[in-house]
Each structure stands twice: as C-alpha cells, then as structure tokens.
Amino acid sequence: MTVRNRGALAAVAAGAAALTVAAVVTIASRPTAEVGADEVTALASTTPSAAGDRSPVPVRKGELPTGAEVVPPVGLRIPTIGVTATVNAVGINPQTNEFEVPPSVDQVGWYRYGPGLAAPAGSVVIAGHVDSSTQGEGAFFRLRELDQGDKLTVTGSDGQERAYRVIAREEYQKTKIPLDRYFARDGDQRLTLITCGGPFDADTRRYRDNLVVTAVPA
C-alpha cells in the first residue's frame, strides 16, 4: 500500500470519527423528551365546589387580616442527581418583575408569596440556577435528568421532612410557559422545580427555555 493510499484511508477514518462524534453529541444533547404533561394539567384544575344555593351565607368578624401561618421550605435533597441545597425565601425583583432566584447558584429559592409546605392546595415553587457564567454549575444543573418516580425530600422550617415523587418534566420556551399554572395557589398539592434550559444565546447570555419538574407528595 502506498503512503498516499494510507493517508487517504486515515482521512476516511478521521472523517468517520468526526461524523460519529457530531452525531452522538447531537443525540445526547437533544431536548429531553417531556413526560407527565397531562398529569400536571390535571393537578392544576380545581374541583367546582358542591355548595348549593341554600347553603348559609358565611359570616366573619371583620377583623384586620393577620399573616397566615406558612411553613417555608429550608432544605432540598434530590439523591438521583446529587442535589443537597439550602432553600431561601425569595420574592420578586422590583426592576424586572421576575422571580428573584438566589444569586448564589448553589442555593435555590422558594417563592414566598405562593403556598408553603403546609398549604392544603396549590403549587410550592422552588427555582434554582442551572449555571452561571461566573460561578459555574448551579444546584439545578442536572434537573433535566429527573424522571417520573424519582424521589426528593424537602425540609420545612418546622423541621419536618416531606417526601415527594416526580410525576412530570416539561420544557417550554420562556415566551410561552404557562406560569399561572405553576404559580397557582389552588388545585392539588404539588411541588414545582424550575430552572433554565434549551439552546443558549451567547450574545444575550440567556437560555431560551425553562425546564419544569413537577412532584407530588409521595
């Protein structure tokens, strides 16, 4: 075999290898298939009250409202993806009107205006960074690996641990995500974890999508 021939064969081999790598990476990084979207929709729907026309009119003392008892989550553990994170109570960024995810990417934020752990209904929302340009991988870097049936544990400020089971993983473009459904204060009790995902725009330094994982009490 000539030297020239060997060079050509090497080129063929290198080409095949490059194609294989490109194909494998493309497949591996494809948006993860969504699971459980119907279950999430069902949880958000509220049962119409069965109160009839003849039910007595409720009467209350017109006292000034006092703060309702709320149990904030303080810790989150997701063994499947190696997450052990502190949960901070956070609200709204007044400049952007957006969820104020804790700036420290190893911590996650609970939406303090929504339901707490003891709420009888609605969605407890915890959001965390997938990553940061300055701090690297965030607490929710591997959130997209969660699948139906995975377990997670939330510790409340009351010291009690509450177990949840993942029922859905969904991905939405940020312009299309139905946030009202995930920040609902009615419907079944559920835990909603949110982070960023999808393609990344290096110019605006923004991800296109939000990744949403829904869990219910185990």
Binding site: T96, V101, V130, D131, S133, E137, G138, F140, C196, Y207
Partner: peptide, 15 residues
C-alpha cells in the same frame, strides 16, 4: 412573576 431567569452560563445548553 414575569419570568424565571435561572442561568447565564450556557454550560447546560441543548440543541
């Protein structure tokens, strides 16, 4: 909230 901005590193990009 108007949105949930939760990443600006790009390491987790898909697509």
């Amino acid at each position: 909230p108007a949105g949930v901005p939760s990443g600006n590193g790009g390491q987790a990009a898909t697509g």
